[in-house]
Design a protein around this nucleic acid. Sequence first.
DNA 1: GCGACTTTGTTCCTGCGTTCACAAGCGGTT
DNA 2: AACCGCTTGTGAACGCAGGAACAAAGTCGC
Lengths: 219, 219
Amino acid sequence: MSHQRPRIPEATVARLAVYLRVLTGLADGGRSNVSSGELASAAGVNPAGLRKDLSHLGPCGVRGVGYEVATLRDRIAGVLGVERSRACVLVGIGNLGAALADYAGFGSRGFRFIGLFDADPARVGVAVGGQAVRPMEQLDEVVAATAATIGVIATPAEVAQSVCDRLTAAGVRSILNFAPVALSAPAGVDVRQVDLSVELQVLAFLGQQRAAAPVEVLA
Amino acid sequence: MSHQRPRIPEATVARLAVYLRVLTGLADGGRSNVSSGELASAAGVNPAGLRKDLSHLGPCGVRGVGYEVATLRDRIAGVLGVERSRACVLVGIGNLGAALADYAGFGSRGFRFIGLFDADPARVGVAVGGQAVRPMEQLDEVVAATAATIGVIATPAEVAQSVCDRLTAAGVRSILNFAPVALSAPAGVDVRQVDLSVELQVLAFLGQQRAAAPVEVLA
DNA sequence: GCGACTTTGTTCCTGCGTTCACAAGCGGTT
DNA sequence: AACCGCTTGTGAACGCAGGAACAAAGTCGC
Ligand SMILES: NC(=O)c1ccc[n+]([C@@H]2O[C@H](COP(=O)([O-])OP(=O)(O)OC[C@H]3O[C@@H](n4cnc5c(N)ncnc54)[C@H](O)[C@@H]3O)[C@@H](O)[C@H]2O)c1
Ligand SMILES: NC(=O)c1ccc[n+]([C@@H]2O[C@H](COP(=O)([O-])OP(=O)(O)OC[C@H]3O[C@@H](n4cnc5c(N)ncnc54)[C@H](O)[C@@H]3O)[C@@H](O)[C@H]2O)c1
């Protein structure tokens, strides 16, 4: 029944997640319709780009009217696979890891942390975000028992690669890495990197560039 | 004297920050030379792309030999403006904000948090990462006194836009936003969004897509 | 019932980023 | 001193994302 394998671009997928969040908020607010312009404004993107993104899902709006909020929300949720909750494991319950474990926003988007792991015996057993931190020895069995496919790494950079190896060996297929190192994982495993220092440095560079070129347009 | 306005692409700037981190590590390890292949491998990018990125800085390698670690590091640091430390303010010292304030990795890359702000009286005065949390009323004077140009928002989404308005009014020109909302800022102010839920959802989608298409290549 | 307006979906195009591939240049070697 | 291998730097082709403009289509008003 593979009548279509649309191959949605990754940049579009990221924006779909944003649209989904906006639509959920609109639905909670009682709205039933939105136009592409309004939705694009709320999502911070161009209206034409938004319509192009939505065109990957097939026609889901009504010309002259706009989009039905609940319908579009469910359609995007279906494509993104949000209807089913995803089991995740989090390794490294330090400052950042504890904040992530305690964050309610993931659960409301279908992500459950079903295991928090740390190598420090002083942290094991401590309750964070409603569950106890587990020792690393339990990683394999928890991943196997819960079929967790997403792993989050919030350990120091020096050990991130070894943690990545353990996660992939345990069966994790997707990894979100906060440690400032490039991880190498076997084929078939997706790794996404979040590097906050890089974000700050890009901002600093743009600001410095802006300051160095005060001459803008002179009509 | 505008003989060149190199206009380095933003994607390249982000990678330059990664190269800088790798080079710093190599220099600390005593290495004096690297080839583009080795550096690209450590940074997780394509060697040809790395050389193209570096070409924006002018010739800085030796053919047949490679790049001198210290020289290249200083060159990139100069372009990125890392030699001068950047003053930043952080608003919203909750779970995530406290982790950011306590993170040593920013300081070593030239970013100093010179003000931590929160609206909750219970949090004001508490020491986080070596300094006391300030009330929001002090925002304008601290920004003015320290000429901070970068603001980080780690507040709930509902108030992020108002915090953004206050920051820009105080003189902040660059904003890093962790709240899951699209911010609108006046022209001349750069806003970068970090949305961790979106990262997880992209990972989940890729994983689901991979699972739905197990047929890969059959040579 | 018909026309006009509104908004979607699509198409074209421009620009950017990425990749491959090759020539130029330097060091080491004989 | 000349040759050879190695690595950089750059030029060209490719694919992709983003933006503007246009046609299709449905609704509202008369
Ligand atoms: N805190 C931030 O705001 C921030 C910002 C950007 C990047 N990061 C990165 O995120 C990562 C975590 O930062 P943090 O501030 O939470 O550090 P942290 O030191 O507070 O926490 C690290 C945790 O990892 C645990 N750990 C160490 N080795 C381990 C191992 N082999 N297996 C499992 N757990 C192990 C430690 O016990 C500790 O609890 C670091 O790589 C850091 O560079 C953090
Ligand atoms: N914690 C995470 O791991 C995580 C992950 C993804 C996104 N986020 C986002 O980051 C933001 C912060 O998350 P958190 O977990 O730290 O929340 P939190 O509730 O722990 O902290 C929010 C802080 O902001 C302060 N605050 C509230 N209103 C304010 C205002 N008007 N001015 C100044 N400060 C104000 C609160 O007093 C509190 O200290 C949220 O928008 C959240 O969606 C957090």
